[in-house]
Structures are given as structure tokens and as C-alpha cells.
Simulated scan of single mutants.
Amino acid sequence: MTPHAEVQTPYHQGSRTVQDKAGVRTQADHVGRSIGQGIRPVAAAFLEIQPMLVLGGADGAGAVHASLLTGAPGFVRATGPRQISVADGVPATDPLAETLARDGAPVGTIALDPRTRRRMRLNGRARPTPRGLAIEADKVFSNCPKYIVKRELYEGRRPEGPGEPRRGTGLTDEQRAFVAAADTFFLATVHAHGADASHRGGDPGFVRVTSPYALEWDDFPGNAMFLSLGNLTQNPRAGLLFLDWTTGTTLQLTGTAETAYAPDDTRTVRFTLTETTETPHASPWRWSGPR
């Protein structure tokens, strides 16, 4: 067998291309063994204490979005060895609401708990249910706590409900400052047979706003899977989600992204936005600052 002969793998050619550029195919094969289709008891228990879930997918026009779903712990739970249910689903005003009203929509999800710096990802296909959504899993896996900022969750919901979404085609000065100060965002990408939602974190300023229509960030060393960057090699459309942990306001960006490779093997992702959606108080939860 040659070093690059294919064995059974959870990766498509896009991820393989990036892994080879980074010289981490062997490491990726090792990490890839942790990807399965089943939801283990420890993962089911983790889901049932989560107050939020990020979901990524494409709308009917192909634009990609990352959306925030929230609820009392238990609103996300395993309902079978390969299935989770999400109470209520996404709000009717969310960019993915129409897509998720149909059976079989490819979605990626990530449950990230700042309290414990743990995260779990589940990718699959969604269908509407009388209570919200059901998602049948294709891939289930966890990641290390690297780049997750620790926060505490305060008791009680905020008194105000979600405000009316405000849409635009470029970042306002206030939004630019918000993005530049962020230490966390979520990234949604898609490929021909599925979708993925992932997390990016770093010190404030790790996301650089280069214009009202563009931003960039360095791709830090991670788990060597390169699921997101692999997807972007096949479909450049992407969605970003920023959350104001104090006010619950969300900022969703949709557009396209490309990865620039430098001679020193560093990578920079450059995102060009086409639409913004800001929703005041989208989350009812109040989180502390970094701990």
C-alpha cells in the first residue's frame, strides 16, 4: 500500500487536499477514527445539559448560514442511537427557516459549552417534527478544548425577547467594532453531500475587519481534519455567526471564503460578505466575560 492509498475514511477530496498541503494526512487518519455515526451515552448526557446549539446549512438559493438555537437544558437530546431532537427549531425569521421546513436538509451542528470548554459536532440530515427538528446523524465526533474561551452561565433568562432582525449588505461601524473585539465565532460550510458547523476562537483581534464587506482570520493549528477548509475548496460559500455573550445579540454573515497559503505554511481565510443579519437579544442566556 502506498502512503497515500485510500482506506475507509470520513474525509472527501477537499479535506484530503488541504491535509496533504499541511502534511498531516497520517495525523488526520488517526483523528478520523474518532468519527462515527452513533451517539454514545456520554455524548447524549452532554447534549441534555446544553442551553444552545449552532446549526449550519444552506438556504434555497445556496447561501450558507450559521444559526443559533437556544432553549432550556434538554431542548436538545438524543432520541435514538443516531438521532437528536431539537425543540422548537429555528425562529421563523432565521435565514434557514424555509430550508429546515423540508425533509432531508443537510445540516452541521456544534454544541459548545464554555463552562467546561467541551464541544461536540453532529452532521446529518434534518426533518421537521411537530415539536421542532429531528436530525439523523452521518458523523458524530468531539474536539479538544483548544481555543474555547471559558465562560460561566448566569441563572435566569433575560427579560427582553428577540428583536426584529436587521439585514444589510455591509458591516456598520458598530458591527465592525463588535467583530474586531470577538474572541469566538462559528463557521458553517457545505459540500456536495453535507454540511458542517465549527468553532473558531482566539484573543480579541484574531478576526481582522479589512472593509465593511470583508474580514479575515489566520487558521490556527487544530485537529488536522480540515473539514471546514476542505469544504471551502469545493464550495466557497460560508456562513459566520458572532454572539454577544452579554446581550444575546447575534450577527450572522453569509458570503464566500477562500484560503490563502503562505510559504511558511501558515493559512489565512479571507471572507467576503454578501448579507448581514443582526438580531437583538436572539439568545435569552446571560454569559460572563472570559474566565
Score class of each variant (00 low, 15 high):
residue 30 H to A: 15
residue 169 T to R: 12
residue 34 S to M: 13
residue 236 P to T: 11
residue 39 I to P: 00
residue 151 R to F: 05
residue 166 R to W: 03
residue 180 A to S: 15
residue 92 A to I: 09
residue 249 T to R: 05
residue 237 R to Y: 00
residue 178 F to M: 15
residue 94 D to Y: 03
residue 22 A to D: 15
residue 95 P to D: 06
residue 287 W to S: 07
residue 173 D to R: 13
residue 59 D to P: 02
residue 109 T to Q: 04
residue 44 A to H: 04
residue 266 T to Y: 12
residue 150 K to H: 11
residue 218 D to A: 14
residue 15 S to L: 01
residue 156 G to K: 00
residue 165 P to E: 02
residue 38 G to L: 07
residue 123 N to M: 08
residue 114 P to Q: 10
residue 156 G to T: 03
residue 19 Q to C: 07
residue 277 T to C: 14
residue 9 T to F: 14
residue 190 V to Y: 08
residue 164 E to C: 04
residue 215 L to E: 09
residue 32 G to K: 05
residue 102 R to W: 12
residue 118 R to V: 06
residue 68 L to C: 01
residue 204 P to S: 10
residue 193 H to A: 15
residue 171 L to S: 03
residue 26 T to C: 00
residue 148 I to S: 07
residue 10 P to E: 08
residue 233 T to F: 11
residue 15 S to C: 03
residue 249 T to F: 00
residue 210 T to Y: 02
residue 163 G to Q: 14
residue 224 A to D: 12
residue 62 G to P: 04
residue 143 N to C: 06
residue 101 A to V: 04
residue 15 S to E: 04
residue 117 R to L: 06
residue 220 F to N: 06
residue 149 V to P: 03
residue 100 L to P: 02
residue 30 H to W: 12
residue 85 S to F: 01
residue 54 V to A: 12
residue 186 F to C: 13
residue 21 K to S: 11
residue 216 E to I: 05
residue 182 A to L: 08
residue 164 E to G: 00
residue 233 T to C: 15
residue 271 F to M: 14
residue 216 E to G: 02
residue 236 P to G: 08
residue 45 A to C: 00
residue 62 G to M: 02
residue 266 T to P: 11
residue 6 E to R: 13
residue 78 A to G: 05
residue 45 A to H: 07
residue 272 T to Y: 07
residue 118 R to F: 02
residue 42 V to M: 11
residue 174 E to H: 09
residue 90 V to W: 01
residue 88 D to R: 15
residue 105 A to H: 01
residue 282 A to V: 00
residue 159 P to L: 14
residue 248 G to L: 04
residue 245 W to G: 06
residue 78 A to F: 04
residue 146 K to V: 06
residue 247 T to E: 14
residue 199 H to M: 11
residue 176 R to P: 03
residue 210 T to H: 09
residue 15 S to Q: 02
residue 119 R to N: 07
residue 97 A to M: 07
residue 123 N to L: 08
residue 64 V to F: 04
residue 250 T to H: 05
residue 201 G to N: 00
residue 200 R to C: 08
residue 11 Y to P: 02
residue 7 V to T: 14
residue 188 A to G: 09
residue 47 L to P: 00
residue 123 N to H: 09
residue 22 A to G: 11
residue 192 A to W: 03
residue 95 P to K: 01
residue 128 P to L: 10
residue 265 D to Y: 07
residue 124 G to M: 14
residue 27 Q to P: 03
residue 182 A to Q: 04
residue 88 D to C: 13
residue 59 D to S: 10
residue 172 T to M: 09
residue 112 L to W: 00
residue 242 F to Y: 06
residue 243 L to N: 00
residue 187 L to D: 05
residue 259 T to E: 01
residue 45 A to Y: 00
residue 50 Q to G: 02
residue 68 L to A: 00
residue 280 P to Y: 08
residue 141 F to L: 07
residue 104 G to S: 09
residue 248 G to W: 04
residue 18 V to K: 01
residue 122 L to M: 13
residue 5 A to D: 13
residue 89 G to E: 05
residue 185 F to L: 14
residue 200 R to K: 14
residue 163 G to R: 13
residue 21 K to G: 05
